[in-house]
């Protein structure tokens, strides 16, 4: 659905990313893992078209991304950035409904979407609340709902930069389950930046490892998420303990390597 061929960014000291190839498939959830400053947000910015690549090409549904108008692009791709500045007292429902701007959704369809997302993200009791009165995690869930309202009516690309960073465990699982359901049911290609290895191994179909401004590895989750590879990437010893369901849990108890 979204294809990157030899895409790189070398302008600016802080936002470098070596050339990479990438293919996001419909119905799949790809997790991006990597230490701070590895280039995860740069990757999202490049794939979303916010940052212009200095080399390579991006194709959305076969067409060059740069050929899309902003509005057309927004109908085929929805993106959640890390920071969500909003300093005005909209109701939570109004904030979520903003996601429908590029789509021509009839009102009943929009209401249905909002209801489904509110249910899936535990926002039902907050819909009429003032957005500014929400806690950090509640606000993040509302913003995630807004981004998911924007998903196209045909299968589209969903890019999420740390969408769960302020959520508690239950809400993390709830949100991931909802995102996976939407992707599988409607055929969207999802890429999300995560920090929790266990959530990634549990929910992602594919995993990308980013380190020091380069995409170091990508593949199916079980192949990529090996303790030795993760230890090398994060520079701490990471071990996997077997669990009853066969997925295992990753832990790290040691201090970083000198």
């Amino acid at each position: 659905m979204l294809e990157a061929i030899g895409v790189a960014h070398d302008r600016g000291a802080s936002r470098r990313l070596e050339a990479f190839d990438l293919r996001l498939k419909g119905g799949e959830l790809s997790g991006v893992l990597g230490p701070n400053g590895a280039g995860k947000s740069t990757l999202v910015a490049l794939l979303s078209g916010l940052l212009e690549p200095s080399a390579g090409e991006l194709r959305l549904k076969g067409l060059l991304l740069s050929r899309y108008t902003l509005r057309e692009r927004a109908r085929h791709m929805t993106v959640m950035l890390q920071r969500q500045p909003l300093d005005f007292a909209f109701s939570v429902r109004d904030v979520i409904a903003m996601g429908s701007y590029p789509l021509d959704l009839p009102l009943p369809d929009l209401d249905r979407r909002i209801e489904e997302l509110a249910q899936g993200l535990d926002l039902e009791h907050l819909l009429s609340r003032n957005y500014l009165s929400l806690s950090g995690g509640e606000a993040q869930r509302a913003q995630l709902a807004r981004v998911l309202v924007q998903r196209g009516c045909s299968p589209s690309v969903i890019l999420l930069d740390e969408p769960l960073s302020a959520l508690d465990l239950r809400h993390q699982h709830q949100a991931l389950a909802l995102i996976r359901t939407l992707a599988q049911r409607e055929g969207h290609a999802v890429l999300m930046v995560l920090h929790d290895l266990n959530l990634a191994s549990r929910y992602a179909d594919a995993v990308l490892l980013l380190g020091k401004g380069a995409l170091v590895e990508q593949g199916r989750t079980a192949e990529v998420m090996q303790p030795n590879k993760l230890s090398a990437l994060f520079e701490v010893p990471i071990e996997r303990y077997q669990t009853g369901d066969g997925l295992g849990v990753f832990t790290s108890n040691a201090a970083p390597r000198a």
Binding site: S48, R71, V79, L81, Q84, P85, L86, Y101, P102
Partner: peptide, 10 residues
């Protein structure tokens, strides 16, 4: 919602 986010909304 922010300049980038508005751009991503089209």
């Amino acid at each position: 919602l922010g300049v980038s986010q508005a751009q991503l909304l089209g």
